[in-house]
Write a protein that binds this DNA or RNA. Structure first.
Lengths: 143, 143
DNA sequence: CGGTATCCCTGAAGATACTG
DNA sequence: CAGTATCTTCAGGGATACCG
């Protein structure tokens, strides 16, 4: 490994969330998990490691620490907007896994909370709001 | 670490592409890279590690090995459809990085190859083709 | 060219005990 | 409860030499 300041956005993103534990922590957080001990017991992660990850995630603006309103001794890790917007990437990975491994019995389904219908595909939009299929998206470099 | 057969689709996906090198290899492959030595020299990855990764990726159906048509001695790693469809997830991560770190000078831009317009947002669609914004997508569990 | 076979070594993860 | 502080282990990565 050992990459310094990479100009690749993907590498950059991976610097922040490319770690396996970070992903799993995020996943649990998306499901409403907010407390240190809950992460420990659910993920089976060592306390010191979790501590490191959370610290980094706070530093990267993925979590904000908030004292619980109900119990003063309890601290809550709340997802920031930045973190929440990463869910699209996780959803994309989930859809991919479901599509290519239909044999596996995954739990849960992606739904639109407004209409309650199942999510089937991912799309993109141009700056002028035109629909674009994923396979038509490319990275282009200016000379 | 140490997760066996996890029922979480995200964990499952990470088992296949959750490794840093795998991500970078994929990225390069999306840009047309196909040969062993090219990955070695561009990524700076150790040969044995690259070998391991490629082997796993072939086993997971991300690459197919094809003898080069131009040079018989050369082997090509070609992305499968499965791998290509993962690009959506990478694009999502790229968009996220660009949005939240506009200060960074990332190279290249996402464009629609049909109209050549810039890609701005990611959307989803329900099974009956209705548009859904990312923030309205949730995972729901059946009792 | 496209790997395989070794050896080494570091850094990340785990376990555990302790603290505010 | 939510961490911190240590200690230890081990596997993953790097370097290098070699092979078909």
């Amino acid at each position: 490994m050992s990459k310094k300041k990479s100009i690749c956005p993907l590498a950059f993103a991976l610097d922040q969330v490319g770690d396996r534990w970070t992903f799993m922590i995020l996943r649990n957080a998306f499901f409403g998990m907010r407390r240190f001990s809950d992460f420990v017991s659910d993920l089976g992660i060592a306390r010191n490691i979790l501590s490191q990850r959370l610290e980094a995630m706070v530093a990267n603006g993925l979590f904000t620490i908030v004292p619980s309103e109900t119990d003063a001794r309890v601290t809550e890790y709340r997802l920031t907007k930045k973190a929440k917007e990463l869910s699209s990437a996780l959803v994309a990975m989930r859809m991919w896994a479901e599509k290519w491994h239909p044999d596996i019995d995954f739990k849960g389904e992606l739904i639109d909370i407004a209409t309650h219908k199942k999510i089937k595909q991912l799309r993109f939009r141009t700056t002028d709001n035109q629909d674009v299929a994923p396979e038509n998206v490319r990275v282009e470099y200016a000379p």
